[in-house]
């Protein structure tokens, strides 16, 4: 079984530098690196430490694009042949990691891979700019299991603090590690816990917490509900609940932009979803838009305050 860690982060956030630091921790192990970006720092055979490191470059655009997912899948197949202990995927700065997670869910095709989590890099000097101009930046952070705050050596202290406040408001419970010069520590990897558990441990009292209760019509299909959730998920940090739909009973469990609908057994346990969001997340606006798309299948119950 190969463990897979996904490394994501917006353009210029320092992924390649961090990757090289990560590889130093795994020197001598059988590591397979899948890279999907031409960064300013080159990753090539000479830079990869350890004799067992293999490299696959996906050179045709970002794997956020559905038309290039085939190349990512082919690279994953290749890791089976190499019997790698660790697979590190450095996604393009414009990659939507939810697409990659969807690929990894094909456990019948990739049964040699154990997904260990997603590390997202955030550039302390520029995050406040790109988090609102590039949707994908927020999507990357929303599915992270661990956030690495890079370039803290050159960012002013107040900027670092502002970014940390922003991250903890939008992505509560997710550990944030400040680093400089790609200095990677074992602790960062050891603490990589899938976010499902992490989010539920957040019990802070927060006046800016947004909580919506959504009633779902049994006439809706799972395809439609998935479409609805995709319209709002990136503006939440969690959506969950049991729903009875046209095609069966499902458990919706979304973390950030990652939408997951799993068939569930009887009894179904209701037809309501809870959506949670934090400070600065425009959930109200996106929810209104989504409700208009899928009227009359989803209805908002009274806003929750507890």
């Amino acid at each position: 079984m190969s463990r897979l860690i996904l490394l994501t982060g917006f353009l210029g956030s320092g992924k390649t530098t961090f990757l090289l630091g990560l590889l130093r921790l795994y020197a001598g192990k059988r590591v397979h690196v899948i890279v999907n970006e031409f960064g300013q720092v080159g990753v090539d055979g000479k830079l990869l430490p350890g004799v067992g490191t293999a490299l696959t470059e996906i050179v045709n655009g970002s794997i956020f694009c559905a038309c290039r997912l085939d190349q990512f899948e082919a690279a994953l197949e290749q890791t089976r042949e190499n019997a790698s202990e660790l697979i590190l995927v450095e996604a393009s700065g414009l990659s939507d990691p939810t697409a990659i997670r969807t690929v990894l869910e094909q456990t019948d095709r990739f049964n040699h891979i154990e997904y260990r989590g997603c590390i997202a890099l955030a550039d302390a000097t520029r995050l406040h700019k790109v988090i609102d101009t590039a949707r994908v930046c927020a999507r990357q952070l929303s599915v992270a299991d661990s956030i690495i705050l890079t370039k803290t050596d050159i960012a002013p202290q107040e900027r670092i603090q502002a970014v940390r406040t922003l991250l903890s408001a939008r992505y509560p419970g997710i550990p944030v590690y400040p680093v400089s010069h790609g200095a990677v520590t074992q602790e960062m990897l050891d603490s990589l816990t899938l976010q499902y558990e992490a989010v539920d441990t957040d019990t802070r009292r927060d006046l800016t917490l947004q909580k919506y209760l959504l009633e779902v019509s049994p006439g809706m299909s799972s395809v439609q509900l998935t479409g609805f959730l995709k319209l709002i998920a990136e503006d939440t940090y969690r959506i969950k609940g049991f729903v009875r739909l046209q095609d069966g009973c499902f458990y919706a469990d979304c973390v950030g932009a990652y939408v997951k609908l799993t068939p569930a057994g009887e009894p179904c346990g209701g037809n309501a979803l809870v959506a949670l969001a934090g400070e600065g997340m425009p959930l109200r606006q996106s929810l209104q838009n989504a409700l208009a798309w899928y009227a009359p299948h989803v209805r908002e119950a009274a806003p929750q305050t507890d």
Binding site: C67, A99, V223, Q224, T226, G227, F228, K230, W293, Y294
Partner: peptide, 12 residues
């Protein structure tokens, strides 16, 4: 592409 729920988008 497949990321969009086409029947729902078609109502728009």
């Amino acid at each position: 592409d497949e990321n969009v729920d086409l029947p729902a988008a078609k109502t728009i």
